[in-house]
């Protein structure tokens, strides 16, 4: 019976026969995707479990190292105040990142278009970059009345430089033959910018955005540490300092968890944005099927 079946269905089955063959790489790709999601989650849960177990097993007091369950509990009980602080930090971080993007792109474009502007302003950008923000923060806090504005400036200083330098490099990175082509077809400066320079700069800009996203959070937290601001309208860094003064270690960890989560969110967001923008053409974001 198997023999008759094969002979009978041979012509029809030819495409079908190749179909399962073709789905193998597809299935493998899906398994890969699931694994790349499952593995980190499993490992993270295992680490948290191990932590919980160690604290319980050695009976470590919670003012030394709180168990994850205690931290979670604190996150719930202190939720309202922590959430208000988290929101403050989120605002600070994203606002400074936004300003860094605006400032970095505008100044970067000026630098790329005009050599004299670059030569005269670049030293200032470098000074801002190489001076640790912790060292400048106290001065800024003295000179700027509004604490939020002062913190914003600090976070901005940290996040701004990578955007600036990558925008400059990116705008200059356009292929010289493509430049010639645009010249040949009498492109206006505006057309050249829009259709050649900006797309060429995008990979550089997106790479800078990934870095600057993380840096703006660091800047926001560091600045707040320096400011040592207390009171209602402050961010997660203030909660950490405050808890440290009061030896509320679980609360410290809870605030820390929120800072980390914010960092992870920024990381995921900038990576997602980069893939959205470059995914269809740039090497760095291409999904390779193998």
């Amino acid at each position: 019976m198997p023999k008759t079946l094969t002979t009978e269905t041979l012509p029809e089955s030819a495409p079908e026969q190749s179909a399962p063959l073709n789905t193998v790489p597809l299935r493998r790709a899906r398994r890969e995707r699931i694994l790349s999601f499952v593995m980190p989650v499993v490992m993270l849960c295992a680490a948290i479990g191990f932590w919980e177990f160690q604290v319980w097993y050695h009976e470590i007091p919670k003012y030394l190292i709180p168990a994850p369950s205690v931290i979670a509990q604190t996150l719930v009980t202190d939720g309202p105040s922590l959430m208000a602080s988290a929101w403050f930090t989120v605002k600070l971080t994203f606002f400074s990142l936004l300003l860094a993007i605006i400032g970095g792109v505008i100044l970067g474009a000026l630098f790329a278009l005009s050599r004299p502007v670059e030569l005269s302003l670049f030293p200032f950008a470098v000074i801002l970059q190489v001076t640790p923000v912790i060292a400048i923060a106290p001065l800024i806090l003295i000179y700027v009345d509004s604490t939020f504005a002062a913190l914003l400036i600090c976070a901005w200083i940290v996040a701004f430089f990578p955007i600036l330098s990558n925008t400059v490099i990116g705008l200059r990175s356009a292929d010289h033959n493509l430049r010639d082509l645009f010249t040949l077809y009498n492109a206006t400066p505006w057309q050249r910018l829009r259709y050649l320079l900006v797309p060429s700069a995008l990979p550089y800009f997106m790479a800078a955005l990934k870095v600057a996203g993380g840096l703006s959070l660091i800047g926001a937290v560091v600045a707040e540490f320096v400011a040592g601001a207390a009171g209602q309208n402050t961010g997660l860094a203030s909660r950490i300092i405050e808890s440290s003064f009061r030896s509320e270690i679980p609360r410290m960890f809870a605030a820390l968890v929120l800072v980390s989560l914010l960092g992870i969110a920024i990381f995921l967001l900038t990576n997602w944005a980069s893939r959205k923008v470059l995914g269809h053409w740039h090497e760095s974001e291409l999904q390779r099927e193998s």
């Binding site: 292929d175 033959n177 493509l178 082509l181 259709y195 050649l196 797309p199 995008l202 269809h280 053409w281 740039h282």
Partner: peptide, 8 residues
């Protein structure tokens, strides 16, 4: 080189 815009 073909000199194509890779994003297009």
């Amino acid at each position: 080189d073909p000199t194509l815009m890779p994003w297009a």
